[in-house]
Design a protein around this nucleic acid. Structure first.
Lengths: 110, 110
DNA sequence: TTTAGTACCTTGCGATACAAGGTATCAAAA
DNA sequence: TTTTGATACCTTGTATCGCAAGGTACTAAA
């Protein structure tokens, strides 16, 4: 019960910054969806496919991301996502919003 | 458009820590709902009544909060919420989860 | 007895994360 | 040549939840 509760809380917190994390990862290197999922899992921002795909599509439709297809030597072609200029702008706004939130909680928790 | 986008992102981030904020405020002092809303607004964790009331009820049902009625000299009685022992435990777990998230984003954004 | 202020609570809607299931490509084994 | 396994993409159905809007109730002053 309590355990469940806490897991719920954690995932709620993570959800709030999921989009921020996606843009952050893509800011370093272009990546395809499966790759992104693995990186986010490594960072303990657990994500399942069903969550990520609609999100990527949404961000693409908002003009934050673009993609290109690339052949793979080991399976089907990969859809590589990359940050657009607008995506980089929004990422900077997210940096600000995140900083503010961290400060706010610092004060609240003092 | 973009502005809207950013507001959306901010509120999404805030939402993720809303429950954490509520418990944090109540950890300092007991408070009634209207008072809580004002404190959270001051902290720029914007909350409207329709969001807060169901949340307080949920946290009460989970055993994190308890309440008592107190008469007011200026209007209807007030429902003062207070942290339970379980609430304090969960708050500590939230502290941990929050720290981890801050660290994760620190690494992701490096 | 009506108005203003304070406080509590509920309903309906839309957004969205997640679980589960589905499609397609490629290469190697049977 | 067909099947299997690995990789990769995507969609659908369900449940949760935040928010806007609307509603109730108590008190005091006009």
């Amino acid at each position: 019960m309590t355990e469940n509760n806490i897991e719920n809380i954690k995932s709620q917190m993570r959800r709030g910054v999921l989009e921020y994390c996606i843009l952050s990862v893509l800011d370093k290197n272009d990546a395809y969806a499966s790759e992104l999922i693995n990186k986010l899992k490594d960072a303990h921002i657990i994500v399942v496919e069903g969550t990520l795909y609609p999100l990527l599509t949404r961000q693409k439709n908002q003009g934050l991301l673009a993609y290109r297809w690339e052949e793979s030597t080991q399976g089907p072609p990969r859809k590589y996502y990359t940050l657009t200029d607008k995506g980089r702008e929004v990422l900077q706004e997210m940096d600000k919003a995140w900083k503010e939130l961290v400060e706010t909680l610092d004060i609240l928790r003092k």
